[in-house]
Computed example of a mutant assay.
Amino acid sequence: MQRRHLVRPVAVLAAICALTLTGCGTETREPGTGTGSAGTDRTIRAHKVMQLTQVHEETGMTLLEGPTFDSSGKLIVVDVTAPAGKPKVMRVNVEKKTADGLHTDSRGAYTSAQFSPYDGRLYLSDYAHGEVVSLAPDGSDPRTFFTGKVDGAQMNPDDIAFDEAGNLYVSDSRGLSEGKAHGRVVRIGREGEKATVLADGLAATNGISFDADYRGLWISELTQNRISYLHLDGEGGVTSKHTAIRVDGGIAQTDSIAVDADGNLYQGLHGRAAMAVYDRNGKRLATVEVPAHAAGLESATNVAITPGGTKAYMTVSGPAGGYLYTFDALAKGTRQSNGG
């Protein structure tokens, strides 16, 4: 949000601050460019499914994020800047093109959503309050899973990913508002009791997803337009970290990440209604584009690929509102195909 959302541009950060009535810093910056990998092989055209939200008068924007499928095949989507009383979490029937509100409250600014393989609950990252909360699948029974400081510093949790045992991995965009590389990757045990910093000194950590084999984590750093890879030791630790892909984003910045069954990465772009697709070796395979006539759409933040299928659903937002677009992914969807 900052996700891209909050992490993002000044307008989003200001909107979240307005929602929470807290003092926040702002920053101005030039988008990263990077050196890039191989040129795009092809363009994939996305098609509109439906409009989900309009710009909220209270916050001056709408920002869809966190698409993830529930056990019944419904798509869960969050609206980062939704004010109190408006749906902050929605459940979408993509076949019937209908949506209903699943959850709202008076304070949360939710930037991602994932279902835990451990307890089956829906987990949400609250960027503004440094918390992770959970809901029953029907939206009831809200609980605080984790809150407080990690190694002496409050988190700004953006995206989340679960390992197979149900431990939670968080992209912490700490330092974004000051323009400093204080971002982190934090691991929280599945009971919510122990939090450990796996990597720090990152440039506005945003997207996070395991690779296809759960051997490592792909993370995007929004203010450097790069994707880094953390190799894991299988016991909750990191053995190495390196810059894996430099994204030629132009005016756009790297947002959320999803991974398909073949290990391909779908990199959302904040500032452009498109996604960049790479293979695990960094080769640019394709660019997913929203039709040029779809005016007023500025960011394709995130994507979810149907479990066991190739139909992908992308969250796209801008002054025209918040929309779902669909396209055919390059490979089938798995748990890691829900983009944080």
Results as ranks from 00 to 15, higher is better:
residue 231 H to Q: 10
residue 136 A to R: 07
residue 134 S to E: 01
residue 183 G to W: 08
residue 188 I to V: 14
residue 168 L to N: 07
residue 160 I to R: 11
residue 168 L to T: 03
residue 184 R to E: 00
residue 123 Y to Q: 12
residue 214 Y to T: 14
residue 135 L to A: 10
residue 188 I to P: 02
residue 147 T to G: 15
residue 155 M to G: 11
residue 177 S to E: 04
residue 186 V to M: 08
residue 232 L to Y: 06
residue 166 G to Q: 03
residue 144 T to V: 15
residue 113 A to F: 08
residue 150 V to Y: 11
residue 156 N to Y: 15
residue 216 G to Y: 13
residue 146 F to P: 13
residue 126 D to T: 08
residue 141 D to H: 12
residue 120 G to S: 10
residue 221 E to Q: 15
residue 226 R to I: 00
residue 149 K to A: 11
residue 169 Y to R: 10
residue 213 D to I: 11
residue 147 T to D: 14
residue 173 S to G: 09
residue 164 E to C: 06
residue 220 S to C: 04
residue 197 V to A: 08
residue 143 R to P: 04
residue 196 T to C: 05
residue 219 I to Q: 10
residue 182 H to T: 03
residue 136 A to E: 14
residue 140 S to V: 08
residue 169 Y to V: 01
residue 219 I to F: 03
residue 114 Q to H: 05
residue 203 A to Y: 15
residue 156 N to H: 15
residue 208 I to N: 13
residue 161 A to S: 10
residue 223 T to M: 06
residue 153 A to K: 15
residue 137 P to D: 02
residue 148 G to H: 06
residue 151 D to P: 03
residue 171 S to R: 01
residue 115 F to G: 00
residue 157 P to A: 07
residue 215 R to A: 15
residue 219 I to P: 05
residue 201 G to D: 11
residue 171 S to G: 08
residue 115 F to S: 05
residue 209 S to W: 14
residue 201 G to R: 10
residue 153 A to Y: 14
residue 115 F to P: 04
residue 144 T to G: 13
residue 120 G to P: 00
residue 123 Y to P: 06
residue 132 V to R: 00
residue 121 R to D: 00
residue 172 D to P: 02
residue 161 A to E: 12
residue 211 D to V: 13
residue 118 Y to L: 09
residue 125 S to L: 09
residue 172 D to G: 02
residue 184 R to P: 00
residue 206 N to E: 09
residue 185 V to Y: 04
residue 142 P to M: 04
residue 193 E to N: 14
residue 193 E to T: 11
residue 187 R to P: 03
residue 148 G to R: 14
residue 117 P to N: 07
residue 119 D to N: 11
residue 198 L to E: 00
residue 170 V to S: 07
residue 232 L to V: 07
residue 223 T to K: 09
residue 122 L to N: 01
residue 181 A to D: 06
residue 221 E to S: 02
residue 221 E to I: 07
residue 228 S to L: 00
residue 225 N to A: 14
residue 134 S to W: 11
residue 194 K to L: 13
residue 168 L to P: 04
residue 230 L to N: 00
residue 144 T to L: 15
residue 131 E to Y: 03
residue 169 Y to H: 11
residue 227 I to P: 00
residue 166 G to H: 08
residue 148 G to P: 09
residue 192 G to H: 10
residue 188 I to K: 05
residue 153 A to R: 15
residue 134 S to Y: 02
residue 215 R to V: 12
residue 170 V to T: 03
residue 228 S to G: 09
residue 147 T to P: 04
residue 198 L to D: 07
residue 145 F to R: 12
residue 130 G to W: 09
residue 217 L to S: 14
residue 135 L to C: 05
residue 113 A to G: 00
residue 135 L to F: 09
residue 132 V to H: 05
residue 221 E to K: 06
residue 192 G to S: 10
residue 127 Y to K: 05
residue 151 D to Q: 13
residue 156 N to W: 10
residue 130 G to V: 06
residue 161 A to I: 01
residue 194 K to S: 14
residue 217 L to A: 08
residue 163 D to R: 03
residue 116 S to D: 00
